[in-house]
Design a protein around this nucleic acid. Structure first.
Lengths: 157, 157
DNA sequence: CACGTTCGCGCATAGTTATGCATCGGCTTC
DNA sequence: GAAGCCGATGCATAACTATGCGCGAACGTG
C-alpha cells in the first residue's frame, strides 16, 4: 500500500481509538492489510505531526495534531490538508497553495500547525495560501511534504 | 523544592522553549536550583498531561495540553487549574470543585482536558463544577490529583 | 506517640522510539 | 539506456521514557 494511503489509514485509526505504542498500531494496520514496521511508523507519525500524550491515570496514547483535544475534531487536521489542498506551486522561496474557494484560512491554520521547520509564515486569501519559506531548498522540501500528505507525490505543480 | 512548585516550574519552562528530552529538561531545572531525576520527570510530565510532539522536519519536543498549539496560550491550562481551583470536596463518587465567581466553565474545560480515567463528566455552574467519577475510589484519586496540581496536598476539603 | 497508610522519589531496568546505514525502485538526464 | 538522484523502507541499535521495587517522610488514628 502506498505511503499516502497508509498515512490516511493511520490518521483514521488514531481518530477511532487509542493506541499506546507503535507496535500496537502496526498490528492494527497489519490486520487491515497494511504491513508496516515500527521504524516506518515512527517516521509516518512524525509526518503527521502526531504527538504522544499521557494521562494522569497511567495511560499513554497517540493523538492527532490540531484542535485535537476537542474530541469531535480529532483527525480533522490532516484530512483537511488532504482534501482541501488542490495544488502547490513554487516560486523561489515561496509556496503558493491553492484551495477550494473560501478554504484558504482553514488550510493556512492547518499548515501552521505542521510546525514545519523553515516555514517563516503564511497568509491566506480566499482560495490561496502564500507560504514564506526560509530558502528555496526548504520550499522544495515543503512542497514535497504537502504533496505527500495530499496523496499526490510529484502531483500538480 | 516541593512537587507542586516543580510542576509549575516545568510548565513555565515548557511554555518558554522547546525541550526534546527529559534529561534536557532535567538539566534546565537543575540550573534553576531544582534537582530532579528523569524518572520523576516522567511522572511529572504525565501529571501535567504533557505530550511529546514531533515535527515533519525531525525535531521532537514536549507540549503542554489544551489549546496548546496556539502559541500564546501555551502553559495556560495547568496554570488555570492551579490558580482557579479554590477547593475540592468529595461526596461519594462526586467531586465538587469550587472556583472564583464566573470561572467554573473555564475550570471545567481544563478538567475535561486532563482526560482523567474514570471521570464520567462534569457540569459547570458559576463558581462550582460538579464532577461525576466512576466510583468513590476514583473520586478520591481525582481529588488528590487536583489538590496536588493546585499545590495544596491534603488541602481544603 | 506507636502504628498503619499514603505519597514522593531514586535506582535499575524493561519497554518504546528514533535513526544511521544499506537497499531498492522510480525518475530524470545526457 | 546507463548513470545519477531521491524518496521510502527494513534492520539493527542507540537514545529515550516508563515503571516495579524499596525506602523514608508525612499524615491520620486511637
Amino acid at each position: 500500500m502506498s505511503r499516502p494511503h497508509r498515512l490516511t489509514r493511520i490518521a483514521q485509526l488514531l481518530s477511532e481509538r487509542r493506541f499506546s505504542s507503535q507496535d500496537e498500531l502496526a498490528e492494527a494496520l497489519g490486520r487491515g492489510g497494511t504491513e508496516v514496521t515500527q521504524a516506518t511508523l515512527s517516521r509516518d507519525l512524525r509526518s503527521l505531526g502526531v504527538s504522544k500524550r499521557s494521562g494522569p491515570d497511567g495511560g499513554t496514547w497517540y493523538e492527532l495534531p490540531g484542535p485535537a483535544t476537542e474530541q469531535l475534531d480529532r483527525g480533522r487536521q490532516m484530512v483537511d490538508l488532504k482534501v482541501f489542498v488542490n495544488e502547490a506551486r513554487l516560486a523561489q522561496n515561496l509556496a503558493i497553495v491553492k484551495t477550494p474557494p473560501g478554504h484558504a484560512s482553514a488550510v493556512a491554520r492547518a499548515i501552521d500547525m505542521l510546525e514545519f521547520e523553515g516555514l517563516v509564515g503564511s497568509v491566506a486569501g480566499d482560495d490561496t495560501v502564500l507560504c514564506v519559506l526560509a530558502d528555496t531548498a526548504t520550499a522544495k522540501r515543503f512542497k514535497r511534504h504537502l504533496d505527500a500528505l495530499a496523496g499526490r507525490i510529484g502531483g500538480a505543480r
